[in-house]
């Protein structure tokens, strides 16, 4: 049973990890908690559902299209909120509030459109389970883990091997210095939002397959925030570690201590971790950005 519980925990954790990485990207460069990430998770789930349902295309195709849409939506959010606030010289608190507003707005619109109903994809995708010994592993969980690894590999390639990645890393050290070097900081920030949006989109779509598509699915963004904080804000490796740790903690606490009190106990553990290591598991002490 312990091994099955660890499998359960990793399957939840890998999903948190993927969420946290996208969330961490924006934090990394701007030092801002971007809650519109939650809106992109929900849009990722709904776009792929709508495309699969109404255009009658295979689910993987729908998910790919949805990822592009959420990337663009995220870039659009940057354009109409952060860009304007930055040009006006407003502090990061205003963007934090704007992003929270976008999250709530999108959720409310989705509640309205879906009438609050939960829906499932019209065609089976990664359904069923395979077994290894007496371990039961749903295909979707294995698929999510694999897709998380692929996404992270692609992301680290982009961050460390491309010009765009170099620019993002430079900007994350200092936006001012990057600007002084003649970099187009608007384009970089927008690019980061696009990438972050695609990651939210892919996770949202997969969450929709794993559970179901429902308007409050974006609430997973809070787990992304906690995973980032535990792992070390702004640190991509830390985000992955934090996600896996929370997933495992939640599952093991539910299984071996108490299921009803699992959220409370999980957060109590996280508080202890942060007291011992305020900079997070993988984090280094950082200074304020922007």
């Amino acid at each position: 049973m312990l091994f099955q519980q660890i499998v359960n925990g990793i399957s939840v954790g890998s999903m948190y990890a993927l969420l946290a990485v996208g969330f961490s990207l924006v934090y990394n460069i701007l030092g801002i908690a971007n809650f519109s990430h939650g809106a992109m998770i929900a849009l990722g789930a709904f776009f792929s559902y709508w495309i699969a349902r109404y255009l009658a295309v295979p689910v993987p195709v729908a998910i790919l299209a949805s990822i592009a849409f959420t990337g663009l939506s995220s870039a659009l959010v940057e354009l109409v909120t952060l860009r304007i606030l930055r040009k006006r010289g407003q502090g990061s608190l205003y963007f934090f509030i704007a992003s929270l507003t976008v999250f709530n707005l999108v959720t409310a619109v989705l509640v309205y459109i879906s009438r609050g109903n939960i829906v499932s994809y019209p065609r089976a995708f990664l359904s069923g389970t395979f077994t290894i010994g007496n371990l039961y592993i749903p295909w979707i969980d294995a698929g999510m883990l694999l897709i998380s690894i692929v996404c992270l590999a692609v992301l680290s390639y982009v961050m460390f091997k491309t010009r765009f990645g170099l620019a993002v890393r430079a900007a994350s050290f200092s936006i001012k210095a990057a600007q002084l070097m003649g970099m187009d900081i608007d384009a970089i920030i927008q690019g980061v939002f696009f990438v972050s949006g695609t990651l939210a989109g892919v996770t949202g779509a997969l969450l929709g397959v794993k559970y179901a598509v429902y308007p409050y699915i974006g609430n997973f963004v809070y787990m992304a925030l906690f995973a980032c904080v535990v792992g070390g804000l702004g640190n991509l490796t830390g985000a992955v570690l934090g996600g896996l740790l929370i997933g495992l903690l939640e599952t093991l606490v539910s299984a071996y201590i108490s299921s009803a009190i699992s959220p409370a106990l999980t957060f109590a553990f996280l508080v202890v971790i942060l007291l011992l290591r305020p900079q997070g598991l993988a984090g280094r002490a950082t200074e304020e950005k922007i």
């Binding site: 049973m1 359960n8 939640e250 539910s254 299921s259």
Partner: peptide, 10 residues
């Protein structure tokens, strides 16, 4: 996600 609880039931 109810897998932790369901595993216990199983």
């Amino acid at each position: 996600d109810f897998k932790a609880q369901l595993t216990k039931i199983k």
